[in-house]
Simulated scan of single mutants.
Amino acid sequence: MSLRRLWAIVLKELRQMRRDRVTLAMIVGIPVMQLVLFGYAINLNLRHLQAGIADQANTSASRALLMDMVATEVITPALRVDTPDALMHALREGRISVGVVIPPDFERRRYEGREAVQVLVDGSDTVVQSAAVQLAQVPLQSQPLANDRPLRAGAVAAAGQISVVAFYNPQRRSAINIVPGLIGIILTMTMVMFTAVAIVRERERGNMELLIATPLTRSELMIGKVLPYAVIGLVQTTLVLLLGMWLFDVPVRGSVLDVYLASILLITANLALGLLISTKAQSQFQAMQMTMFVFLPSILLSGFMFPFAGMPRVVQWLAEVLPLTHFLRLVRGIMLRGARWWELWPEVLALVAFIAVMMTLAILRFRKRLD
């Protein structure tokens, strides 16, 4: 072995990496991204869960209890309603994660040591369910009612007066939360990569010039290239659904058609993003590298692996740009809470807007590159 020839090859590779800006960005970007995301954005200690309040007693004691609950920083009041039914409706739509119900006879229940407060929790997320249990530890200061014998100062209500009721996943089975999210993870990973690599592969093989010479418009060419992958995405969705129901008994409480409509939105969004990446990538290797830049934040910030509510506000704003974030809310709302797609219209609107922007940018960049 010649050290001189070996050193020449090493220098060649270093110079080639220096010219390849995407590879250089991956070398620096992935460690920085992982450090920032895991060190700053990921927080398993949930705080400030969106909560709905139904204070039917509306007394000084009930208001003091709510202030004590808010002081724990576990919940943040986001909605005030009059009835528990309204809280359940908001819980199903995903507008809140926790609901606090204080009945009209709160004072009597508190004094008699009976269940005085009920905390309703969206149990489809087991981490949220675990965090909400902390609310049951908030003390109720017992005070005597009129004409009753006085209690000793500082007496605390009996344990169990604040009950936590988990809906949609009372057994706290992780598979019920994970399997619907896996649909989004698989579609994000495969659809973006397949589309980005497919377009670049045509360019590398010299087939793109032949396609341009045909009467096809650029929009027809790009949409026609990605339609087969949309079918593949639906096959993957069906496979995950069937295996999830068969192996893990994952329920589909909503409409299966709504699940497929949500999946089509995510598939289209990822295909549009893959097209945009393909207009920038110069090779298949670069396309896969750029796909990693999309996939890594998606899996970490969307709420699939780590609770969305535990992230800093700035990171939550960034996560709102990712299509996987909105799909997870859609698919979990439909499959686990039985919501209909029009009840989750903000997530549908966000995905439609993402598709429109990405597809427009991809077509504009594609035309500019071919002229």
Rank of each mutant, 00 (worst) to 15 (best):
Pro31Ser: 07
Tyr111Asn: 09
Arg110Ile: 13
Phe106Ile: 01
Asp105Glu: 02
Thr126Glu: 05
Glu93Thr: 15
Ala57His: 01
Arg15Ser: 02
Leu24Lys: 09
Ala71Trp: 03
Ile9Asp: 11
Arg109Gln: 04
Gly94Tyr: 03
Leu24Tyr: 02
His89Ser: 12
Leu24Pro: 03
Ala116Gly: 02
Val81Thr: 02
Gln34Trp: 14
Val100Thr: 04
Ser124Ile: 13
Glu115Cys: 12
Val98Arg: 06
Asp125Gly: 01
Glu107Pro: 13
Pro103Asp: 00
Glu93Leu: 10
Val119Thr: 10
Gly99Ser: 09
Thr126Asp: 04
Arg19Met: 07
Val100Ala: 04
Ala71Gly: 10
Glu115Pro: 15
Asp125Glu: 08
Met88Val: 13
Ile75Pro: 03
Glu73Gly: 09
Arg110Pro: 02
Phe38Ser: 10
Asp122Ala: 12
Gly123Asn: 06
Asp105Thr: 00
Thr72Gly: 00
Leu37Lys: 00
Leu44Pro: 00
Gln34Pro: 05
Ala71Gln: 11
Leu11Gly: 08
Leu37Phe: 08
Tyr40Leu: 12
Arg63Pro: 15
Thr83Trp: 12
Thr23Glu: 10
Phe38Arg: 11
Leu44Ala: 08
Met67Ser: 14
Ala78Ile: 13
Gly52Lys: 01
Gln50Lys: 14
Pro31Asp: 02
Asp85Ile: 13
Val32Lys: 07
Gln16Tyr: 09
Leu66Ile: 11
Ala51Ile: 11
Val127Phe: 14
Pro77His: 04
Pro77Asn: 07
Val98Cys: 03
Arg18Gly: 05
Met67Lys: 15
Val74Glu: 01
Val98Ser: 01
Asp85Gly: 13
Ser60Asn: 15
Leu79Gly: 02
Val98Thr: 07
Leu24Gln: 12
Ala61Gly: 06
Asn58Ser: 12
Leu24Ser: 11
Ile9Gln: 06
Ile102Ser: 05
Ile30Gly: 09
Glu93Val: 11
Leu37Ile: 10
Pro103Arg: 01
Arg92Val: 10
Gln50His: 14
Leu79His: 06
Ala57Gly: 08
Gly123Ala: 01
Met67Asn: 15
Ile9His: 08
Val100Gly: 12
Glu112Gln: 14
Arg63Leu: 10
Arg108Asn: 14
Leu66Cys: 11
Leu46His: 12
Arg95Asp: 04
Met17Gln: 14
Ser124Met: 09
Asp105Tyr: 02
Met69Arg: 05
Ile27Phe: 09
Ser60Cys: 14
Val98Tyr: 01
Arg92Phe: 02
Leu14Ala: 15
Val117Tyr: 08
Arg95Phe: 03
Arg15Asn: 12
